[in-house]
Write a protein that binds this DNA or RNA. Sequence first.
DNA 1: TCATTGATTTGCT
DNA 2: GCAAATCAATGAT
Length: 201
Amino acid sequence: MRPGPDPLGSPEDADRAFRAPRPAAWYGRPTVVVARELLGQLLVRRDAGGLRLGRIVETEAYVSGDRANHAFLGPTARNRSMFGPPGTLYVYRIHQVHCANVVTGFGEAVLLRSLEPLYGILEDPRGPGRLCRALAIGRRDDGTSVVDGAVRIARGPGPPPAIDRGVRVGIRRARHLPLRFALRGSPWVSRPGLGGRGRSR
DNA sequence: TCATTGATTTGCT
DNA sequence: GCAAATCAATGAT
């Protein structure tokens, strides 16, 4: 019997992830592919307070021609980061929280919706707003790169995970598009419908 | 300058 | 299940 993937709970794990980020070209692929493959990847934050590490368990894709996409009407002051190179962070504020996305292609991005805490995360990171709060992601991170910035993404351990797919959450337009992805069976997914402990029945 | 809107979260019924 | 909180971006006046 072999043990499963390493639990990755140590500061050394966080440091290793921070030093070995995915290259920019990894993000420059079709948005839906990146949204799926981001599941199981490591999200790591370094700041004056130290390191924080989590596993991405839920994402949403925002694609070209998608009316729910902030970039649908073209570049504006808010969304200009979405037109940066692959791997650019697009951080925006909605209501009283921030949400973080990773740019894939021109005007396309993946919303990071939920995280499994691995190291240094003291608050609940389930949901895009809580994820940003737990990692102290804010306006100053908008336009930075997950390849060489203070917030980075690195390869996760283990084989490609089983993935659930469904409709996106909380949007008004283009509700029918199945562009939400989650790690099957993960209790860290933000809302019922995908992941979680399965449907009660 | 004013009004509307929202890729959320929280608390109450 | 529903509404309120709360604020910056956006578009209209």
